[in-house]
Simulated assay, not measured.
Amino acid sequence: MPRRENPIDPHAPYAGLALLLRRAREEAGLPPYEALAHRTGFSVSALAQAASGRRLPSLTVTVAYGTACGGDREFWAAQWNVARTRRADAGFSGSAPHCPLTPAVAGRWESSCSACAS
């Protein structure tokens, strides 16, 4: 049985993108990272790190992860851009970021958003 993922730290600089990636994986039926690695060509550790929120994964990893879970390339590229831009605009200081969800997904996942819940 696969090891349980650590919770996303709401203070992590890319918690919003990590939340979206994990939610996509959940909606895809929680395929193990080994299966995602096979589908994407990226390592298990690269995929798990992408969903940790601690650092911005590459655009390529983000899009591959999201599309392997049944998502749309343009959607995942846009979410990556939002994460990158918000991090740069916020000048991350270690405090909880503002809501990381774009308007397109906020209605669906707002209750799961650690920034919105606080």
Rank of each mutant, 00 (worst) to 15 (best):
L59Q: 04
E34I: 14
P2N: 09
R3M: 00
Y65C: 05
R25E: 03
I8A: 06
V82Y: 14
Q79T: 07
G66D: 06
M1C: 10
P103F: 02
R4W: 00
W80M: 12
S95F: 03
H11P: 07
S93E: 05
R25Y: 06
W109G: 04
D72Q: 06
R39L: 00
L101G: 06
R73D: 07
C116M: 05
Q49A: 14
A115S: 15
Q49S: 10
W80H: 15
L21H: 15
A77T: 08
A106G: 11
R86V: 03
A51R: 14
R3S: 09
G41Q: 12
C113F: 00
Q49V: 14
T85L: 10
I8S: 08
A24G: 04
S43C: 12
A46K: 08
A35E: 00
Y14P: 08
G107D: 02
F75L: 06
A96M: 12
V105L: 07
L47P: 04
C113S: 01
S93Y: 03
F75T: 07
A83Q: 05
S93V: 12
A77D: 11
R86G: 01
R25D: 03
L101F: 14
L101K: 04
S114C: 11
P57G: 01
V105Y: 00
A50Y: 11
A90I: 10
S93T: 15
N6E: 05
R87H: 03
A37Q: 03
T85R: 13
A115K: 04
H38E: 03
A96I: 13
R54G: 06
L20M: 08
L30V: 10
E26Q: 14
R3F: 14
R4H: 10
C69A: 05
R73Y: 08
R22P: 10
V61F: 06
R4C: 09
L101C: 13
T40V: 03
R3N: 03
G94Y: 09
R86D: 04
P100N: 05
Y14V: 07
V63F: 01
A48W: 05
R108Q: 14
V63P: 10
F75D: 05
A115H: 05
A48I: 01
P97M: 07
A51H: 11
